[in-house]
Design a binder for these strands. Structure first.
Lengths: 207, 207
DNA sequence: CCTACCGATCGGTAGG
DNA sequence: CCTACCGATCGGTAGG
């Protein structure tokens, strides 16, 4: 886990943490330099601009979400199973780097064009794939829900709220979070009761 | 609805819209002045500082949320009914002013002390009251959920995601959003199936 | 509500 | 990676 980071990676990681805590706009290049122990001007040997850091974080995270979803969807199954896997994949990416996730979720609006438009379209495509699974589940009778779009919204709300409370040393690990989330979401979605197969997990305390 | 606004209210409302779109830090007093059609210096005849506007918005919204919850909880009933009413109250406040809600939910971190601490403690108390209803529902058997804290988190995630997609002229009005949200959340919470009593509502299209 | 202005800080560059 | 510095802009004040 403690791999050697290039200076550029160090800058990106430190900036991400600052962007998360203070926000992109309120973080100055001098704040960043200070956290790195160098002068502000020196940062520019490694990156072109402050916004470039934000771009890299946002699009790297987008890539990670897509990759995880691709892997999750490469396995066949019922709509329920596929949704569960998609949720688990999303939670994994989210919890693996909470700072980058927070930046991805909240600081993207400081992207300038054409990055902003591209970011928005990536998000749309990603959400569309979840909506597709739900649509299938509705049409084959697995899910019973008044509005497919609303259901997708609910899933993403639960998913993207995680970074606000998740602590790596908390009582739930990412797998348990995903299972609990799926359980809570699916029992609301499921028409017939395979509640027992969704098994919400109880707490083990690792610390 | 189109009441006469004092200059101070005008400033607050315009600032709120800008804070929502650009964020607190990225909004300058010159941006605000420009939107109002006056000079930046003139704003200071009405307010003491940029942060004062943020403080007013955050604590006014906190007050509105508490007032709505007080009213909702003044009516007795089962835990299910009380949770439904609390959710509806929250949705009402949220949708009544989406800009102020967005600022309340995302810009509070730019509050300085002691306001930050007070804000955080207000939120904690508010969430605690939802947690209390859930706790009661669990202990009297209405709800079946592995973790009370997790359930509360899920409710707030669904609740506080609304402002990102809610459109006043969309196909769901606040009451319908609340009912759909309750339905989706409660059927996940409910042990016995009073699904039919929760009645998720279908779309009427006002526009 | 304006003009005129303040010191501080911003993102970023030149040149080594 | 640093020193030295740039023009622009920041939140805010004085005085009317």
């Amino acid at each position: 886990m403690e791999a050697v980071l290039s200076r550029k990676e160090q800058i990106e990681r430190t900036a991400t943490a600052l962007f998360k805590t203070k926000g992109f706009s309120a973080t100055s290049m001098r704040d960043l330099a200070n956290a790195l122990g160098i002068e502000a001007a020196s940062i520019y040997s490694h990156i072109k601009s402050k916004e470039e850091i934000l771009q890299r974080v946002c699009f790297r995270m987008a890539q990670e979400f897509f990759d995880a979803l691709d892997t999750a969807e490469s396995i066949n199954g019922t709509a329920t199973e596929r949704l569960q896997r998609a949720i688990a994949a999303h939670v994994q990416v989210l919890t693996k780097n909470t700072a980058a996730s927070a930046v991805f979720l909240h600081e993207w609006r400081h992207l300038s064009e054409p990055y902003l438009t591209e970011y928005l379209s990536l998000r749309d495509r990603y959400e569309g794939r979840f909506r597709e699974v739900i649509r299938e589940g509705i049409s084959n009778g697995e899910f019973s829900v008044p509005d497919e779009k609303f259901a997708t919204l609910m899933i993403f709300s639960g998913l993207n709220w995680i970074h606000t409370w998740y602590k790596p040393d908390g009582k739930m690990n990412p797998e348990e979070i995903a299972e609990n989330l799926s359980a809570m979401l699916l029992t609301g979605l499921n028409n017939t009761q395979h509640n027992t197969s969704v098994n919400p997990i109880h707490l083990n305390t690792p610390n």
